[in-house]
């Protein structure tokens, strides 16, 4: 206490404020980088899952009678043999009723038409020829053209989120380098005339250096925690803005619970300030002690 008072009176104050700001920025940028990376991936995966690639083949009823199973089986066999067709499936009556409920406001009268679903990547003229060759009354409903337009958008989204994450990581690293520079800058204290005088008079510099290292570690920790607070607030605001796109149904759902952020990711974010604090303290203390030992 006595010595710290002496130091406060006789030495220039170090740039703890700037150091804390660097630590806060570093945490913020790195956190935003992780968020951009995870958020972009999660959003594109979520949209991709919701894309409908299904083609419907509807076989209408004839004279109020259901289509025979043999006829359906023939159509399914013919469709399955086409190149580019996959997941050929004959819908059950319950599935058909659910589907028709979306298409018509009133209940569909029995008998319901037979519906075959499939994923088809080939030429639709070939599919039409193959089906109409067996039954000219069948209707072929290709998937929503939105799925075709969304693919390039998703590619852009993935590239964009990677780019933003990269920029954020770069800014975080630059902020870290700034903090590192400031902590190494304490070595300039070795040139300080007043510190030199105190050393000559027998002032225990190792204690002073230890206390400086603790201050630096504390500043890094405080800055990191502030950065973490800003980051959480920012991400919560952003997730509330993009809530419709993320398909968050309830208000209680946040970016923390809805995306693919795992507890490990949260731990990494929480650990960053502590890591910065420890590293800063160790670097500062070690460098200053090395300088002290080389004095004789």
């Amino acid at each position: 206490m006595r010595h710290s008072s002496l130091i406060t009176r006789s030495l220039p104050s170090l740039r703890y404020g700037w150091f804390a700001i660097c630590a806060a920025l570093s945490t913020l940028w790195l956190g935003l980088g992780f968020a951009a990376l995870w958020g972009g991936q999660t959003l594109s995966a979520s949209w991709e899952q919701r894309l409908d690639h299904t083609t419907f083949i509807t076989v209408p009823t004839l004279d109020g009678r259901s289509t025979s199973n043999e006829h359906i089986a023939t159509i399914m066999r013919a469709v399955s043999q086409l190149p580019g067709s996959d997941h050929v499936h004959f819908l059950s009556k319950a599935e058909i009723n659910t589907l028709l409920a979306h298409w018509s406001a009133t209940p569909w009268p029995d008998p319901v038409p037979a519906i075959i679903t499939l994923h088809y990547n080939g030429d639709y003229r070939v599919l039409e020829n193959a089906v109409h060759h067996l039954d000219t009354n069948t209707l072929i409903l290709p998937p929503n053209p939105q799925s075709e337009t969304l693919q390039p958008l998703l590619a852009v989204l993935k590239r964009g989120s990677s780019l933003i994450a990269g920029l954020c990581f770069m800014s975080g690293i630059l902020s870290n380098l700034g903090a590192l520079f400031l902590s190494l800058n304490t070595l300039s204290l070795r040139q300080d005339k007043n510190l030199s005088l105190l050393e000559k008079l027998g002032y225990p510099l190792s204690k002073f250096y230890r206390s400086r290292a603790i201050y630096f570690g504390g500043a890094a920790l405080a800055g990191g925690l502030v950065g973490l607070g800003i980051l959480f607030t920012l991400l919560t605001s952003i997730s509330s803005l993009v809530r419709p796109f993320l398909h968050l149904t309830t208000q209680s759902q946040t970016w923390l619970t809805s995306t693919s952020i795992t507890p490990l990711h949260i731990m990494v974010l929480l650990f960053l300030p502590f890591l910065q604090g420890i590293i800063s303290a160790l670097i500062s203390h070690r460098r200053l002690l090395q300088a002290t030992r080389s004095s004789l």
Partner: peptide, 14 residues
Amino acid sequence: PRTSSRTLTSLRQR
């Protein structure tokens, strides 16, 4: 040159 900084400090005080 290997004398510890703590020893040097205590000697400097004398």
